[in-house]
């Protein structure tokens, strides 16, 4: 989706936008020609594989011999497997670490970076964004070292007298899930921050001046102007982070493989195992379809909850003017 054109659509007065859309419908068939190459690509490499997955989910299939149709049995298995229920629960815990925390940290950092004049701001912004750029395998290997029982984290803890809390973070049944979650927070907060910084740049400076004239402090300013104006960015950040959290595989696979025991197993670990190790492609497809629907539902709820209810600048001005 192109952010810039959508932004422009908001600026353009609604009636004109409507007229433009209706004329678009009239010419839609010739317009379709323009998007045909992209649509073809999308169809072959996205839609078609999705359809195959859906179809495969109704079969028992080893990837080699002819599949046998099994009706909804694979789906029944998805909903009755206690291991999968446990995995879903782990995913919900990870939602907090992979989505909620990064958004909160991102908001805090964006608020700070946009207020304080720092020399080399671009540099800091780039550095804080690095986790997002690194390959997740690299991230996983690095953190495996950091979180090891004789790793830097425990050394620091021992140095400051917290040695009794030091443990093998990824190897302990109680700490493995939060530890893996922490890695996700580290990966995602940079993306959130950059999104929010971009949003803050777009806020009319005069709103802040007005608020300051009215005697608003930093926190009040943030709550009354920045936060409401960032609603669309928060929505996008949450959608990206939630999707990342629920389909997260590479970080977990490269740090704990779902262990110790099954304490960090998430649905995508089971999907991988069924598809590539157990050769149970039908079962894996059913799980993947359910996971996709779950992601769509949760993302839909977030989108609905954070939809724009009124014109942002006016709302900001109104609350900014209180006092």
């Amino acid at each position: 989706m192109t952010v810039s054109s959508a932004t422009r659509a908001t600026v353009v007065a609604t009636p004109r936008g409507r007229r433009r859309r209706s004329s678009f419908t009239a010419y839609s068939w010739s317009s379709l020609l323009y998007v045909a190459p992209a649509l073809l690509f999308f169809g072959v490499f996205v839609i078609y594989p999705i359809c195959i997955s859906v179809q495969t989910s109704f079969y028992e299939y080893d990837g080699l011999t002819v599949a046998t149709p099994v009706g909804a049995a694979n789906y029944v298995a998805v909903f009755t497997d206690p291991a999968l229920r446990e995995a879903l629960l782990h995913s919900l815990v990870l939602l907090f670490f992979y989505a909620v925390l990064p958004v909160v940290i991102g908001l805090g950092l964006a608020g700070l970076l946009s207020r304080i004049r720092i020399y080399g701001l671009t540099f800091f912004r780039a550095v804080l964004f690095i986790p997002q750029v690194l390959s997740s395998v690299v991230v996983a290997v690095a953190w495996r070292g950091i979180l090891a029982s004789d790793g830097p984290l425990n050394s620091v803890m021992q140095a400051v007298g917290l040695g009794s809390f030091a443990t093998s973070w990824l190897g302990d049944f109680d700490t493995a899930l939060p530890a893996v979650g922490g890695i996700g927070t580290w990966v995602q907060y940079g993306l959130c921050m950059v999104l929010f910084l971009g949003g803050i740049v777009g806020i009319d400076r005069s709103l802040y001046e007005a608020a300051r004239l009215d005697g608003a402090g930093a926190i009040r300013e943030f709550r009354a102007i920045t936060l409401p104006a960032l609603r669309p960015q928060i929505s996008i950040a949450l959608i990206l982070c939630i999707t990342f959290a629920l389909r997260n595989f590479d970080i977990i696979w490269n740090t704990t493989r779902g262990g110790p025991g099954t304490s960090t197993a998430v649905p995508s670990v089971y999907i991988y195992q069924d598809a590539f190790q157990n050769r149970a492609l039908g079962q894996a497809s059913a799980m993947a379809v359910v996971l996709t629907l779950l992601i769509l539902v949760i993302v839909g709820i977030v989108q609905f909850a954070l939809r724009e209810r009124s014109d942002v600048p006016r709302a900001a001005r109104r609350s900014g003017g209180v006092r």
Binding site: C51, V54, Y59, L64, V66
Partner: peptide, 21 residues
């Protein structure tokens, strides 16, 4: 269009694993 493509794809396919290889 998406629904149409889906229906065509599902209806037009034999069971996975038939043919090919």
């Amino acid at each position: 269009g998406l629904v149409g493509v889906t229906v065509v794809a599902l209806a037009g396919c034999a069971a996975p694993g038939a043919g090919g290889g």
